[in-house]
Design a protein around this nucleic acid. Structure first.
Lengths: 189, 189
DNA sequence: ACGCGTGCCTACTACTATTAGGTTGTAGCC
DNA sequence: GGCTACAACCTAATAGTAGTAGGCACGCGT
């Protein structure tokens, strides 16, 4: 009965890794217990329930992804920033598909408001500053970017574009390019 | 022990309704058995397993959605067709969120190839005929449309845009408008 | 050295998925 | 109209996941 130093934080990290390995919806308290070498009920000292685990992983992923995006867009503007922003999302999803799926977990409003989700929205708005859009166009554009990037990444992960020419990178570049052109044409200037 | 006339088809329909009521990932063989007033193991005469049920619901939803889209775009072209196409997806998702989620279930390649999924792709390409795009632009554009519509609808259903101005319909119109402009500007003419 | 809290345990309950095998209602045949 | 046979439903049993209750002990703070 040696004590492993389990904490909610460590469990969240392990859960995130588990998610990347077997898929977010296969993340189960049982599997996590096995992975940590303890019996299942032991985890309930650290977690409220399985939903709590999922939410913690989601918040962790949102935070990590926001950090990456912030890093990617730092010091860039305009088309360059847009491209870095887009790639940060796509690369994260490819590298950590389970965590990316976790980041899309539906959170209740208060949790969402306290999450890194707000940073994501702020960063999207920041990217758009380079295009000088008037409200409400800026909001529409934020929603468009969120839709395209999330939609593309989730279809790509689901294998929707697999095994068909032209390859996925080409389409991605074309799409980012098109969005840049679109936003420039909507510029208020 | 009265016999209800259960068939795979009826179970699929009931499952689809259940999905709309409680969410696709809450669709369980147990719940379906309760809903149909039979004991759980009885369903295994009609279904292989719970995954089989989910796949059947997915195929049903893909078919139904394809029918709706086909209906919506019939006799339209250009911007008009694009808008009808987009609205057909969004309206279906709002009306039948569980079925819409089912339609996004990842299918194995052979199942997918035999599903109504191919009709969806064909219809998207048909819409684009009005914009006279050269390959590979047409493929990129199909992927863009799929990404935007799926992304927007899924974020909207997840409550991502809720309770914030401007309202979701406005953004939707702006986005469809923007896509139309974008596709026209990419026209090969 | 000792207490006591926390960290992990065993044991139990409830639900879902699935298989095996039994029973009955009814459709079709004589 | 009764018989048969199959299909549709059942009960019973196994295994996995989620969660609760309560016990024991490791080791930290005094």
């Amino acid at each position: 009965m040696e004590k492993r130093g389990l904490t909610p934080e460590r469990l969240t990290r392990e859960g995130a890794e588990l998610a990347d390995e077997v898929g977010f919806d296969q993340v189960t308290v049982s599997a996590l217990a096995r992975r940590c070498g303890v019996k299942l009920p032991s985890l309930y000292s650290h977690l409220l329930n399985s939903q709590d685990l999922r939410v913690r992983i989601a918040l962790f992923a949102l935070e990590e992804l926001a950090d990456r995006v912030a890093d990617a867009v730092a010091g860039r503007a305009g088309r360059d920033a847009l491209s870095a922003f887009a790639d940060a999302y796509r690369d994260y999803a490819k590298e950590h598909p389970g965590r990316y799926a976790a980041a899309r977990l539906r959170l209740d409003p208060e949790t969402a408001a306290a999450s890194a989700g707000v940073r994501h929205a702020q960063m999207a708005r920041a990217i758009l500053r380079g295009y000088e859009l008037n409200d409400p166009d800026a909001t529409h554009a934020v929603r468009l970017l969120g839709s395209v990037f999330h939609g593309y990444v989730s279809l790509e992960l689901a294998g929707g574009f697999a095994h068909s020419a032209p390859d996925e990178q080409e389409s991605w570049d074309w799409i980012v390019d098109s969005l840049d052109a679109l936003l420039r044409s909507r510029s208020s200037s």
